[in-house]
Amino acid sequence: MRWLVRGAVAAAVLAGLLGLARVIEGGLMEYAQRVLLLAGINVILAVGLNLINGTTGQFSIGHAGFMAVGAYTCAWVGQHLAPGVAGAVGAGAIADAISLNAALVSGAVTAALAGVIVGVPSLRLKGDYLAIVTLGFGEIIRIVFNNWKALGGATGYSGEDPAGLPAWTTLFWVYAWVVVIITVVRNVTFSQTGRSLIAIREDEVAAEAMATPTTRLKVVAFVLSAAAAGVAGGLFAHLQAGIRPEDFRLEKSIDMIVMIIVGGLGSITGAVVGGVFMAVALELMRDLEEYRLVLYALLLILIMILRPEGLFGSRELSFGWLRRKARGGEPAS
């Protein structure tokens, strides 16, 4: 019964998304569409990163590296898969969808593997030491791609076609993945695993004394967030004509951190808001050209000084919370 209901809900969401995507794609300027696409990718990045940085309190500033791993894998797999798929089901939207999603899954898997390789040694460290080690790994990943001749080295990878990577990243698929990632992260967060992750953030010594397998859970959270970054990277790759190592510099990792801090560390709702905010704000500031990044940095500093807990703190926006709010009852926290 439950699975039937869930299936129906999922179908309805998909149909809704498809309809919405059609309407928007038909009626909206390309420019606005691009903002929506970027916003969706940001949300995936932010919700994923928030699981380790916010919920678990283990700060990574190297997630651009996992995004890069996902992006390169997805682009490469997509290139090599597409002809076969097109041969099997005939070229068209269905073939593209199959190729894209297979490539995204492979991107998520390799990013998760990279997450294991980085996470297992790093997560023994805490605080800013952990932050610095992840930064180091992020840079190493970028340097490796920078020197990987088969993947284009410093000039980047854009596939065999001179027109670049196929533009598979549509509103529908971006937001379908947004729904998937948010659902997975939410279900993990509100479970025994999630409670344990929060306990690790609050007091690791006490969490260990309660038999929490802290190291394993930290790695799990880290790997899940790396996988989400991999998916975002894959979607990003097929939004651009090509990807370059410099797309995944330290600044990209910092962008992700800004997203989750603006919204409020530890809150999924906050991560969603932060991701959208980032896409929209950068777009609105586009006309300011070179002043844009100055303003951006200034904004970041001001947020840290004036409201370091972000817009949402660690609260979640849920139906229950809205109901309580409406009743004027106690605040959820």
């Binding site: 605080g127 800013d128 600044e251 951190i257 951006y296 940095a297 970041l300 840290m304 000084i305 370091p308």
Partner: peptide
């Protein structure tokens, strides 16, 4: 100084912000 007594990550992010600010001001 305004964030000196905040949780440790707040000054860290602030420092990253100042670094970005000065880089971009430098470019400008």
């Amino acid at each position: 100084r305004p964030v000196r007594n905040a949780p440790r990550l707040t000054p860290l992010i602030t420092a990253i912000g100042v670094s970005l600010l000065l880089q971009n001001l430098g470019l400008l």
